[in-house]
Design a protein around this nucleic acid. Sequence first.
DNA 1: ATGGCTGCTTTGAGCAGA
Length: 258
Amino acid sequence: MKIASWNVNSLKVRLPQLTQWMADAQPDIVALQETKLEDPKFPVDELAAAGYRAVYSGQKTYNGVAILARDGAGEFGDVVTDIPGLDDPQRRILAATVGELRIVDLYVVNGKAVGDEKYAYKLDWLAKVREFLARELERHPNLVVLGDFNIAPDDRDVYDPAAWGEEVLCSPPEREALLAITGLGLADSFRLFEQGGEHFSWWDYRQGAFRRNMGLRIDLILLADALRPAARAAAIDRTPRKWERPSDHTPVTLDLDI
DNA sequence: ATGGCTGCTTTGAGCAGA
């Protein structure tokens, strides 16, 4: 079973790249972020033609999340788009059961800058999500939490830690909020396999950042303790970032022996 | 310090992203 997460930065623009990548990489489950599509405009038919079913929670212009499951990966169940204590019009959360797995897709708030009101919203959002995930884990031990976390877990995940310092995406309160989530028993699966730096999932569109590998690792797949023995490989697939008109993020994947 | 790309928007210059 191969699980993937990709911030596509507009599914309307990136649909051909998504279907191409799925044909090449053959993932069983794909979590998408920044679809930027209202639900009636979600490309259900095109994805069905590619062999995937979908659940989605979108809005116009901003945000938007979706979970795709290959035909045969299991039925969708218990879909959640809103969590207790978070009355939020922004479509950033989508949870669904797929076969034996519980999947939670997150598009974490960017936060703009430390001290900005959006930064306060980010920290509050993360605290509410942590409470939600704690309850999810009680009911669903086979939990996978994945998405665009908009937090670089530590300095290995930053191309120039000195330059980034304690700016947004790297600030101690954000990293502590992420640790509070992983501390529930949700491992950053990439680090089960790779300890080094220079592995990034996002690169700025400007200044040739991708070519120079000036990026951040902010797209994560967190794996519950119960699934850890099944983890076989984690990877960041840089191929789509090399294509014409790419998303600024590239897909991250996890192979599970289930 | 600024803007640098890209996608989006009651089509346009401005916002948001990270």
